[in-house]
Every structure is written in structure tokens, then in C-alpha cells.
Computed example of a mutant assay.
Amino acid sequence: MTADARDLMVTAQEVARLRDAEQLEVRDVGLAALILHFLRSEAEVEDSAAVSLSPEMLPMADEVQEIMTSGEGALRNSELVELARREESELSEYLGPVWRAMKGY
């Protein structure tokens, strides 16, 4: 196993643990690959003044636009995580522990 593959599998194990899994699944490997991709991309940027890490904003789905404009006061991380938990049943297993940690449960 290469070092990169080992890193991916270690991260996938942590991703699976986040959802209290009994076994590692393909989706855990997929999410781990995304996490590592973004971590490595950030680490590879040498001169932050020369490279913009802020690409053009994408249009937002109605549900996202609504939560950004409907509340009073500052939008909190927990509100965005709750939206993702409600809308994406596939991510609910992963986001449950994140949401509970944010709420202090």
C-alpha cells in the first residue's frame, strides 16, 4: 500500500467513526478522498498573495438562499449544518455528531 493510499484509508476510518459505523463503506472512502484533496490543495499553495483561494461564488439553491436571508442576527454554523442534515439524508449520519458537538450535547 502506498503512503497516499494509507492516508486515505486512515482518514476513511475516521470518517466512518464519525457516523458511528460498524464497518467502513465506499462512501466513507469517497468523503475521505474529498477531505484529503482539499487539505492538500491548501497546503500546495505557496504564495497566497499570488493565488486567490476565493473562486467566483456559485448560484445558491433556494433553500440555501432562504436560510441566508430569513434569520435575524448573524447566521451560525449550526444553522447551516442543520439545513444540510434536513436536506441530505445521505449526510445525516455524518452531520449528526457534528451538529451535536456544535450544540454542546
Rank of each mutant, 00 (worst) to 15 (best):
S92H: 06
G96W: 01
E88T: 12
S92F: 02
S70D: 03
L58I: 01
E88V: 12
R100I: 05
L83E: 01
W99I: 08
S54Y: 13
S92Y: 04
E82F: 10
E42W: 09
R40A: 04
E72K: 11
P55V: 10
R76W: 03
E79L: 10
E87M: 14
R85E: 04
L95H: 01
E90G: 11
G71M: 04
E46K: 12
M57E: 15
R76M: 14
Y94Q: 00
M57K: 13
E66P: 07
R76C: 09
E63C: 11
M57H: 11
A61M: 12
E44D: 14
E79W: 09
S52F: 02
V81K: 01
S78R: 14
P55A: 13
A84L: 02
M60N: 10
E93H: 10
R76N: 09
E63W: 03
M68I: 10
V98I: 14
G96L: 03
R100M: 06
S52C: 09
I67R: 00
E46Y: 08
L80V: 15
S92G: 12
A61T: 13
E56M: 10
R85L: 12
L95I: 04
V51F: 14
I67T: 00
Q65R: 14
G96T: 14
M60T: 15
V45R: 12
N77S: 09
N77D: 08
G73N: 08
